[in-house]
Amino acid sequence: MKALVIVGHGSHLNEDSSLPVYEHAERIRQTGEYDEVVECFWKEEPSMRHVLDMVESDDVYVVPAFISEGYFTQQVIPRELGLAGPITHKGDKTIRYAGPLGTYEGMADVILERTDDLMRGKETSGRTALVLLGHGTDLNKNSSGVIYWNAGRIRERGVYDLVEVGFLDQEPEIGEVVTSVEAENVILIPVFIAEGWHTRETIPEDLGLSGEVTEREDRTIFYGAPVGPHPSMAALISARAREMEEKFVHGAR
């Protein structure tokens, strides 16, 4: 039997934080690709500490529902799940640990799908810039690296006149980017895993956004939903696990 374990951050305060993980798990469950699809969290139950005892399958694929490689994916998740590396044997179980979602090649496509959802039926004239919004932190350069990396991938496709990045907690600061980017249309997509305090409150407030579309004197700002809850992320999670399977199961033959 084969199981997929999706690891989310979860929250003690925000009931919506874990919702994308549950929704993606249900989508993957419906595909029948796995005998079991189980969710676990850092801040919610079931915890990472106990989830493996709840899995009946011997082949276990663990995919972190996190955007970037960093503190959680490299330190907290392996520690709490008791993982020794990409492959861990525990009793009869073989646990394969995949990388985060933001660094996966399909991520750029999900961002563009999110952008298409936002811009469907909206008319624009003049130059259009896509701005990817990341949390960022001065403590870990991988946090911003994944945003730059995806911006680069999208830039190569030439769909938008400009593709820029902006952050909440590091330079370049998002407010500055949105104001100064040389375009009449600014599409702002938060590269976040879930809706929450930042996407609903701090970002609209700090940028003076009035909803999905905000008219300023010299530009129109289109504010999209975060990438994480997009239904296509479920396929990305599956693909991440499948990649591990191809690399370590079939590749090993």
């Binding site: 005892d53 709840m54 899995v55 009946e56 392996p78 520690r79 008791g82 993982l83 020794a84 590396g85 861990t88 525990k90 009793g91 009869d92």
Partner: peptide, 16 residues
Amino acid sequence: MSTAPVKRTSIPNVAA
């Protein structure tokens, strides 16, 4: 990374 100690292995499939 080192493997975390696993003290209990007596029950093969605890979930089932």
